[in-house]
Amino acid sequence: MNIFRLFGDLSHLAAIAILLLKIWKTRSCAGVSGKTQLLFAVCFITRYIDLFLHFVSLYNTEKVMKLIYISASVFTCYLIFFKFKATYDGNHDSMRAEFLIVPAAGLACLINTKFDAIEILWTFSIYLEAVAILPQLFLISKTGEAETITSHYLFAQGSYRALYILNWIYRYHYESHVDTIAIVAGVVQTILYCDFFYLYITKVVKGQKIVLPA
């Protein structure tokens, strides 16, 4: 564990907490893409499938973190699609999730470290996570704006994988550890946030709201 991965995971936890708080406090999921949250839930379940297969006692923080990620993302989907369904902006959340899931699954079968079920599921989860934020970014571009709290959520969510890139540089240099699939997908994922990061740093930090040129 190094400082970059630690802050990366904390940033990821913060993102999940910010989104839950936003939906719970405002009792609304306006401006939040339900599809992105579903894709994240699928990512966590397929990536941490080992939790279900051979359930080992919760002996370390890693297992606890995995359970937190899975339960929080499933709970977020429950809030969006059931509890606060009336506030779900379905017609703006219109990116076809199949266009993300099918290519990720296909690519996972073609490019992977080892052709076995667990490894393919993990690879699928990595590829899917790289593009999972697209429906959310698409929704913001359609509505033309993002609530400030949603911007903070996106900033934390984007920072998590950006910090993981620093973690991979660190591990390459000090532990000669390389996981090409995770690195390439992580770089693609972070690149997708670039224009949002620019808007966030130039606008939200100055207290303005993000309004996209419609």
Binding site: D9, E62, K66, Y69, T113, K114, W122, S176, H177, A182
Partner: peptide
């Protein structure tokens, strides 16, 4: 560089 197949990252 050694490839650690064990997934030790979240």
């Amino acid at each position: 560089t050694k490839y650690t197949l064990r997934k030790d990252e979240l």
